[in-house]
Design a protein around this nucleic acid. Sequence first.
DNA 1: AACCCCTTTTGACCTCGGTCAATGCGACGA
DNA 2: TCGTCGCATTGACCGAGGTCAAAAGGGGTT
Lengths: 249, 249
Amino acid sequence: MLDDDANVTVRAEIRCSTCPVRHRAVCARADADELALLDSVKFYKTYQAGQTIALRGDPLEVLSSVVTGTATLSQSMEDGRTQIVGLLLPSDFIGRPGRDTVAHDVTAVTEVTLCCFRRKPFEDLLVNMPHVQVRLLEMTLDELDAARDWMLLLGRKTAREKIASFLLLIAQRTVSNTISNSDLACDDEVRISLPLSRETMATYLGLTIETVSRQFTALRKDGLITLDGTRTVIVPDVAALSAEVGDGD
Amino acid sequence: MLDDDANVTVRAEIRCSTCPVRHRAVCARADADELALLDSVKFYKTYQAGQTIALRGDPLEVLSSVVTGTATLSQSMEDGRTQIVGLLLPSDFIGRPGRDTVAHDVTAVTEVTLCCFRRKPFEDLLVNMPHVQVRLLEMTLDELDAARDWMLLLGRKTAREKIASFLLLIAQRTVSNTISNSDLACDDEVRISLPLSRETMATYLGLTIETVSRQFTALRKDGLITLDGTRTVIVPDVAALSAEVGDGD
DNA sequence: AACCCCTTTTGACCTCGGTCAATGCGACGA
DNA sequence: TCGTCGCATTGACCGAGGTCAAAAGGGGTT
């Protein structure tokens, strides 16, 4: 895991105390001692948009947290059909203690900075970091719930419902990453800047790029969204868009 | 969680030492002390086919392992569209320590016997059962991988590929539940007895019952499977069926 | 054996989203 | 200012799988 390409930047200068994901990542509940342990062994890596971070089956040598940027977890078939099975946004964890190979392909979709730990040392430290251990289980359970919610989307939702769900998901995650008191309840318009291209969205939603594009157009014509360029979506009425999702999640 | 219906049987007579899932469930790696703790607080419940075991949003009071039978985890939309997001076969764990509500609907599809623990006492005991704790994380990670594999199936596979994948999944899980040295490599024919109706399969695969039925017919006409009644599938050539799956999982 | 109930299968038809191809639209370098 | 390159949009067409409806199996029970 984590290629040592020439164009992968390795840095180590950031202090945990000023880390943007300090209170949401795997270290969220770490106490001073635990944080000191982590701080002493961590190092940073930065990947450019489009770079492969790890491939399914690779030896899993490094675990990490996303600090900035967006990456994807994906699964492919022999003939090239691909499904994104997880979006990795800031604070998400990559890799699993106790596994020795990478389970899914990991790709940077924007520039991504990771806070990394070598797996073996991290696993050894883990027994002395109960708060990290608990947080890891909690995050894994959250991921499992998210994966299962996505299964409903992939198996049963229409293209329009998929797009609406996706926009609200990104809106929700963006809000909770900026304001700590999160709730997408504001009545006025919401600006969403999409971290994904149409193509990547399609791969995430189990659609084709053309269908994604057509649904964006349809939502725009129906007045549910406005586009500012191709990567910024303005939602004038969140409740109206939510009504397109089909469920109460 | 776990209704106290009149027709839910509660029993407590089985010893862990003779339990059919002793070496695969959450207790798989429990030592003698840990097992004694579990043994002293556990109790059994049996549900009839079709009964609801728990509903999304219910207070989560009981955690359990499936001992015998098959249950489903499912997620529904307002208009009734439903997706099964997890199959619960013997040894699978239901519920999560640290959560206080049920995340998905749980339904018995055959008669199901559960080995149950009240949540609070179980959580308290958990700190004294490191092997159980580790096993729980491991099982959760396995579930997450399985969920993500299923996302590829739901998002990208054709109906035929879905059916083939499902048959092989059941075959694999059946084998690993009977023989410990599991590998579906036997050249001769394999008999699969399906725990699910066509309808339930459809709900699991993101299809309709008609499509499931048609694909069974198609696979039969192509000589890839033989049916013995409606619930038993004979696979004369596992490799040939595997070729229909579309990937190397 | 006749009836009922429920699941499964089959048929006819339609629609949503995929496919293939052309066109549009910035951003960037010459 | 003009190409060009990559992404996005739009159009025309098609087909896998959904929908609706009817027929065909099984078990049970009387």
